[in-house]
C-alpha cells in the first residue's frame, strides 16, 4: 500500500466552487470538506444548491470556477469513482431484474466488491434476493439502492434522502450500517429532510442557502448558534399569559404541558416559578436541529 499523504484524511472537497445555470447562480464559491470516518449532513431548503454541490463532487457537472475533488483527484476519473458508493434520490432501476441481479451488476463495476450475499445480509435485503425490482414497495426499493451503494466497499458514500419511505425497522438497520461504516473509516455525505436523521447520524452539518454555506459545525454547535431553548412543564400558567412575558418567542399548550420557546431561559423560568409555585415536571432543553435550521435559513432570507 502506498504511503498516505498527511491530507489523505480528506476524501471529498469543494473549493470555492461556483456553478451557474443561466441567470441562476446555483453555487456561489462554496467550500466544503469531508474527511474519512466522518458523516457530513448537507442541509438547506429546496433550491439551496445541495444537489448541484453533489453533482460537482460526483463529476456529473463541472464547476464554472473553483474545484471539486475526491481523494485529491478529479471525480471524472473512473479510478476515483471506483472508491465511492452512490444512492440517489428518484432513480428507477430496471424493474425486470431481481434484487440479486441489480447488486451483482453494480458490484461488477468495482475492483473488490462484496458478494451479493454479503451486501444483502449487511443491508437486511436477503429476503428480497429473487424478487423483481419492479414489484418492490418504495421502502424496499430504497433498501436495495442502499445495498447497491455499499456493495463496492466504498471509502466515500453519497446518500441522498436515504430513508424516504422506509419503515422504522428498516430505517434503524440503515442507520446502524451507516454508523458502522463511518466507524470503519468511510466518509459519508448525507442529504436529508429528516432532521432527526441528522441528529442521529451526523458528525458535522453544513447548511446551504442560495448556493452559499451559511453555517457549518457539529450538531451541538449548530444548536448553540441559535441558542434558543424549549421550556416544558405542567403549570397553571396559560400559553396566552406566558406570551405576554418579555423574551418569550412562542408558547403553546401540548396536551397538559405548557411549551415555551425562548432565548433567555433562566429569566423565563424565574417568572414561571413566581407565577406558579406548583410547577411540575419542569424541563429545559436546547432547541432541536429543526429549530436551528429554520432560524438559520430565516435569517438568511431576511438578509
Amino acid at each position: 500500500m502506498p504511503l498516505r499523504r498527511i491530507n489523505d484524511d480528506c476524501v471529498a472537497e469543494l473549493s470555492l466552487a461556483s456553478k451557474r445555470f443561466g441567470a441562476l447562480l446555483a453555487l456561489d464559491e462554496l467550500s466544503l470538506v469531508v474527511r474519512r470516518g466522518e458523516l457530513l449532513a448537507l442541509l438547506g431548503p429546496n433550491g439551496a444548491g445541495k444537489t448541484t454541490a453533489i453533482s460537482l463532487l460526483l463529476g456529473l457537472a463541472r464547476p464554472d470556477s473553483g474545484e471539486a475533488q475526491l481523494f485529491g483527484r478529479s471525480p471524472h476519473l473512473i479510478d476515483t469513482r471506483r472508491r465511492i458508493g452512490v444512492m440517489m434520490q428518484d432513480v428507477g432501476l430496471a424493474p425486470e431484474l431481481c434484487v440479486r441481479e441489480h447488486i451483482e451488476l453494480v458490484a461488477s463495476y468495482y475492483p473488490a466488491p462484496l458478494s451479493s450475499d454479503e451486501a444483502m445480509e449487511m443491508t437486511g435485503t436477503s429476503s428480497l434476493a429473487t424478487r423483481p425490482y419492479g414489484k418492490l414497495s418504495t421502502g424496499q426499493k430504497r433498501q436495495v439502492q442502499f445495498a447497491t451503494a455499499v456493495c463496492g466497499r466504498p471509502s466515500l458514500l453519497f446518500l441522498d434522502e436515504p430513508t424516504v419511505g422506509l419503515d422504522v425497522q428498516a430505517r434503524e438497520t440503515l442507520w446502524q450500517v451507516v454508523r458502522r461504516l463511518v466507524d470503519s473509516g468511510v466518509g459519508v455525505v448525507l442529504t436529508t429532510h429528516y432532521l432527526e436523521e441528522v441528529e442521529a447520524l451526523a458528525d458535522r452539518v453544513a447548511v446551504l442557502a442560495r448556493g452559499r454555506l451559511i453555517a457549518t459545525g457539529t450538531v451541538t454547535e449548530m444548536r448553540s448558534i441559535v441558542g434558543r431553548k424549549q421550556i416544558a412543564c405542567i403549570t397553571a400558567v396559560t400559553a396566552d399569559q406566558a406570551l405576554t412575558w418579555p423574551d418569550v418567542e412562542a408558547a403553546r399548550m401540548d396536551h397538559e404541558r405548557l411549551r415555551i420557546t425562548t432565548s433567555c431561559a433562566e429569566e423565563v423560568v424565574r417568572r414561571l416559578l413566581a407565577a406558579d409555585a406548583g410547577v411540575k415536571e419542569l424541563e429545559v432543553e436546547r432547541a432541536g436541529l429543526a429549530e436551528a435550521f429554520t432560524e438559520l435559513t430565516r435569517t438568511e432570507r431576511m438578509q
Binding site: 502506498p2 479510478d79 471506483r82 473488490a112 449487511m122 461504516l181 473509516g185
Partner: peptide, 22 residues
Amino acid sequence: MNSALVAMNLENAAAPSVPAAR
C-alpha cells in the same frame, strides 16, 4: 454482518488499479 463490515475497512482505499479482467 460483521465480517462484511470488517472487510470493508479502508485498506482498499489506495487508488485501485483495475485489471483488464475486471
